[in-house]
Amino acid sequence: MADVSTHPGPPPIRAVPVRHYGRWVFVAVMVVALALVVRAFWGADIDYSVTLRFLTAGNVLSGLVNTVVISVLAQAVGIALGVVFAVMAMSRHAEVRAVSAAYVWLFRGTPVLVQLLLWYNLSLVVSTVTVPGVGSWPTNQLITPFIAALLGLGINEGAYMAEIVRAGIQSIDHGQSEAAQALGMSPLLTMRRVVLPQAMRVIVPPTGNEFVSMLKMSSLAYAIQYGELLQSAVKIYSNNLAIVELLLTVSIWYLALTSVATVFQGFLERRFSRGVMGNGRPSVRSRLLGLGGPGTKGAVR
């Protein structure tokens, strides 16, 4: 590209930019609103040293670990179920499609908190679980708070993921699966190797959102005695009565978790945009990070 200073043609344009006065009004309003909130918290009787001290308390940390564990596992269950039910939703067989539609209808149409409580109280519905040839267990021993939370959050999440995965699959040009079929690939192989990897580009961003909301939704498992972050705070403040202090403690941790999840989501989005970037060249950023953009063969299995 030619150096602008040695450019032989007419002088470069020096126009007066448009002034956005509305922007300044907006900023001013926001600053005032923020000041009011800060003053309210400052004036209130809150001991922030308690908030900070409990950030690393043993109970809070184990609650944090449990929150991460249940969120990751429930999201994994949700993704697996979502893929299965999305594929079922596009089946040639009407009865298979009906099962998928019924699943989405049922689990998206009832509150997660109700679902969690139902799973937790499953023993009131079936008293023993029998696997033929393996054995039989009383339900109330099988359904621990952890299992109930995993089932409740995971199966609910599957209903949302099914819709996301279906939208992703349907965004892929039909010519792609035709080309795969013409090469002799089976429908399953076509889905796994050709359609899903491309659909990921459409699936990953909303899945990231889902996971961020899963991190927070897992706090509902507090209602079924699962020892996650919120429950640890409640336990502590019912002793020392520092209610707001501890709610702020867990808020800080939730913010930290969702921030990490957001960064991770950006990482995945770049990973799955391989080969389909605007002009087909890797961005400087993806090259620096060694992500699998075009031309970085190493990242391609």
Binding site: D173, L183, R193, G275
Partner: peptide, 30 residues
């Protein structure tokens, strides 16, 4: 279909694979 090759008007290459990977996919997987 394995014994029948087909070439489409709109190419239908797999955009997430390199040229070489596009060619290797079916012989390796199928």
């Amino acid at each position: 279909r394995r014994d029948i090759g087909m070439v489409f008007q709109r190419f239908n290459l797999f955009p997430h694979m390199t040229a070489l990977e596009n060619i290797m996919e079916a012989p390796c997987r199928v």
